[in-house]
Design a protein around this nucleic acid. Structure first.
Lengths: 245, 245
DNA sequence: ACCTGAACACCGTTCAAGT
DNA sequence: ACCTGAACACCGTTCAAGT
């Protein structure tokens, strides 16, 4: 039974925009949401996401494990605040150039980079009851670029969901390969299949799970190609000039 | 410390291909891998993936919670076997038509369908030390279709990873919206943003997170379009015939 | 050869009690 | 107003002991 009911829709997460003005008026070092979120990120960076337990966190903060409950309603609300803070970095220093394809590429690659460093992030985003403030800001930038690309509202929405799914999926699959030896284990596993029943797998294996960044880049370009063609299907045929690899 | 060392590469999972011949020579109803996997799936279908604990499973099987350890080295090995069994359904009744685009579409949609019913599946797949047997069979079918589409080995590998990422990402994002009220909560959240700072979000919101299947279909068609263009960039321009919606 | 049962080392969360 | 500490109801896993 969830307490449910009066959540209204003021996002429940208090985005607080990092807009200078007095982020936390307490003695420095005392608890407060920001300090807890900081400790969370530090702990995750230091020992991995699975080390983030309330007891460990309490230890790092010099407080009881349950002290966090004075500032967050649950662990998942805390993780939402953490994800929001991390995702805010995606747009740090981003300036739209007006070249829509370049801008979409840039934002997506930045988002992927953050997701790769914090693989536990994607599930938290998906589990949130409403889009995090930082996700909304990223989405707005992407919407804008896609509109500049010539897409209508409906296609913008669909294109955004495509980019979102691809980025989330790639990040969660690539996260596994952090050790990088997993990728080669998967590749070898395909390579060693019986060639009579798996002829294609054996042939393709050498190219499988090689460089995650290259593979992501390839997929992103495919998606951008398709979106470009969707916006401008009358593009001239370009006969004669060289094909692709 | 993982026991590590002599795993060699015989996949560690004993795919057992469901090839008729004596799947389990014990008294019917006695433990054995198959019976445990069955109970796992039944339990997950009945009460959701988070209900699958060894204690609950032991209860359902009329055995002690730790009895599973006589047949699986760990819970994650068990979940691997469960995922393998579920994914085997993807190719049930599939017959390649030779029309590559249709075949890829068909297999991906089937995979998505299975993933949607069992949202916990994707993380298990990604976490596996080697590709599950059923994943290898699905991959072989996709490789074959992509080759028919005119792609070379390297592009087949990259296209496969693109499809894999997209399908996994979409499934994990859509899984959240099982209740369907989450989708509209996200949509409303975008719609209610201040129009001056989020003009595009407000305009796009009505089309966002509408129908997961439609959105997935759109993205898949985009990807297939791009792959088709990659294989045959010399396609005639098709002037005059109607554009897209 | 297979299973049990107690135990270990953890979890997130609640709530009365402290200051 | 904020924090503590004990307690609750769980986890996955190990291992000696049973049959």
């Amino acid at each position: 039974m969830i307490r449910g009911g009066m959540t209204t829709s003021r996002t429940d997460l208090d985005g607080e925009d990092a807009r200078a003005g007095a982020p936390d008026r307490r003695q420095p070092g005392r608890l407060g949401r920001d300090v807890i979120v900081d400790a969370c990120i530090a702990l995750a960076d230091r020992e991995g996401a699975e080390a983030v337990t309330l007891r460990r966190l309490g230890g790092d903060l010099g407080a009881d494990a349950t002290a966090v409950y004075r500032h967050f309603r649950s662990k998942s609300e805390l993780l939402g605040a953490v994800a929001d803070r991390l995702l805010a970095r995606v747009l740090d220093g981003f300036e739209p150039t007006g070249a829509w394809r370049h801008d979409v590429h840039d934002v997506i690659v930045r988002a992927r980079r953050v997701s790769l460093v914090h693989p536990a992030l994607a599930p938290v985003l998906a589990a949130a009851p409403a889009p995090l403030p930082s996700v909304q800001r990223i989405a707005e930038v992407l919407f804008d670029a896609l509109r500049l690309g010539g897409l209508g509202d409906r296609h913008i929405a669909l294109a955004y969901q495509l980019l979102e799914s691809y980025t989330a999926g790639a990040a969660s699959l690539d996260a596994r390969a952090a050790a990088d030896e997993v990728n080669s284990a998967w590749r070898v596993s395909f390579a060693m299949l019986p060639a009579d029943r798996f002829p294609n797998a054996v042939a393709v294996a050498p190219h499988l799970y090689r460089d995650d960044d290259d593979a992501f880049e390839f997929g992103l370009e495919m998606i951008l190609d398709a979106l470009e063609a969707l916006a401008a299907p009358w593009v001239p045929p370009m006969v004669g000039t060289g094909g692709t690899g």
